[in-house]
Design a protein around this nucleic acid. Structure first.
Ligand SMILES: NC(=O)c1ccc[n+]([C@@H]2O[C@H](COP(=O)([O-])OP(=O)(O)OC[C@H]3O[C@@H](n4cnc5c(N)ncnc54)[C@H](O)[C@@H]3O)[C@@H](O)[C@H]2O)c1
Ligand SMILES: NC(=O)c1ccc[n+]([C@@H]2O[C@H](COP(=O)([O-])OP(=O)(O)OC[C@H]3O[C@@H](n4cnc5c(N)ncnc54)[C@H](O)[C@@H]3O)[C@@H](O)[C@H]2O)c1
Lengths: 234, 234
DNA sequence: GTAGACTCGGTATATGGTTATCGATATAAA
DNA sequence: TTTATATCGATAACCATATACCGAGTCTAC
């Protein structure tokens, strides 16, 4: 077997499109955005990296570097214009253009996402939901129609949907992803705890709540049960 | 103002307790765990890093290094015992001991989490929910009582609850966190998009769905709108 | 009008995590 | 029994990100 060689090669080849922004910086931008919107609501019009950093627990240099990726220009002594900064982040993230999405699996989590109107402020509009449960099909949940899964690929194609959200049981997730790919969907937001196998050009983001849980669990366990020495003695 | 100096100093001082495992490795452990449980269900008893890596899209060395943190010992040529490995991960993450938790904010998301029974397999048991909405208080949702927020601190103390989950609106999150701290809660799983201000010894994990959304949105925008050149010209 | 203080932007260094390399060991086949 | 091969564990090189530093610009206060 040469699995490992293939893999590492593959991973390297996957990287030709330079990220142009580090993933951690990308993840911090929405946090700046939340804070800036708060400031704007309070009528504050200018802000410095130091203050943003103080609020979010980051050092000013890091904030400055992150913001630079959006193309914003600040002025010495006064900092940045709050309005410009919000605009710069939204434009950079593509939040000004709406992404229409399909959601599959109208259970506990799917219903919660369907009902979250705030997503629309961040460029996400879930336009329809899909399920295989005949008792759910035909219902309207949070003003969205629940359709049979079989229609997904066809509708996605005809409506030019680019984003799919998976909130079905883990066992079904791969099959659903396959349908999405068939329908021309480009990006998948996956809440099921499985690794999806999709073509290279498909963007997949896993929202792995169990990873978070693992971190919390480990830290709590460590605090309460292990005073020192975590690994086996040397 | 000397905000920045204070901050960087503070950040450095926050790091005295060495993590002893990199955060990314910690986040990958649950993924190995999911896969290993699948293998065990299929009756497979031994597994190598190469195969795990091939499944999850990781190179074998990285898998091996991650697993080493759990203290597992493998054998050359044959790899690891699946059963031992599952046990090692669960013990390491503290999933064998149940963490009891309180959840605050029985809305869309809170209800979804309350109904997710699978969490109990990973050491998490939500024992009660809290809200300020008088129409929700007194109800039982997914077999959990919804209690008034005022009782949280007292109950947390008496029941020795160590984990709090925040799924209330962002505006209320800080106040809720304060209550949790007052009740002796040690760790907070925060789904509201705000930076919580809590004492240093409190563990906080933010589940920031908007960060994920930002990544997806940016990548989609990039694919469809920007053929090349992201930042302003040099 | 000038001195001083604050903040931005660019470059350099440090840190932490990932990836590569190598020797040792266990299994299986000859 | 011996040889070939796959895998583990440890060490070392490498890379991305985070942090530090420094010069330049602009506003405030005297
Ligand atoms: N609810 C949570 O808090 C939570 C937390 C973490 C992860 N998750 C994950 O999210 C996913 C959904 O969780 P949930 O609690 O909402 O589950 P759920 O059982 O409440 O809902 C699952 C939904 O998917 C539908 N479904 C089943 N098979 C399907 C298929 N083949 N195609 C389309 N739809 C199908 C079901 O009819 C149901 O409506 C799971 O993978 C779960 O592991 C949920
Ligand atoms: N629903 C989602 O898909 C989603 C996605 C991302 C983030 N979030 C975040 O999760 C949080 C909850 O979202 P949601 O959609 O469930 O909102 P929701 O409005 O459906 O529910 C909020 C709940 O909190 C309760 N509440 C209000 N004020 C409270 C207070 N002071 N103390 C305790 N409880 C209080 C309300 O009564 C309600 O039951 C929000 O911060 C939201 O930004 C939700």
């Amino acid at each position: 077997m040469v699995i490992d060689i293939n893999l590492s090669t593959l991973q390297r080849l996957k990287r030709p499109e330079a990220p142009s922004i580090p993933q951690p910086s990308l993840a911090r931008l929405p946090q700046y955005h939340h804070y800036l919107v708060d400031l704007a609501d309070k009528g504050i019009s200018r802000i410095s990296c130091s203050v943003i950093g103080a609020y979010l627990g980051l050092i000013p240099v890091q904030v400055r570097k992150d913001l630079q990726y959006t193309g914003i220009i600040g002025k010495p002594k006064t900092g940045y214009s709050v309005a410009e900064l919000i605009q710069a982040i939204e434009t950079f993230l593509g939040w000004n253009n709406i992404n229409e999405a399909f959601l599959v699996g109208v259970g506990n989590l799917g219903t919660a996402l369907l009902g979250h109107e705030r997503f629309s402020k961040f460029g996400l509009r879930i336009v329809a939901a899909f399920d295989t449960d005949s008792t759910k099909i035909g219902q309207w949940i949070h003003e969205k129609a629940v359709l049979p899964l079989e229609q997904l690929a066809d509708l996605a194609q005809r409506m030019s949907i680019h984003l799919g959200i998976i909130t079905c049981p883990a066992e079904a997730a791969q099959a659903v992803a396959d349908e999405m790919v068939k329908g021309g969907i480009q990006a998948i937001w996956n809440f099921a705890p499985v690794k999806l196998r999709v073509p290279d050009h498909i963007i997949v983001h896993n929202e792995d709540l169990y990873s978070t849980l693992a971190s919390l669990s480990w830290k709590l366990a460590r605090r309460f049960r292990v005073p020192v020495q975590e690994k086996e003695a040397v």
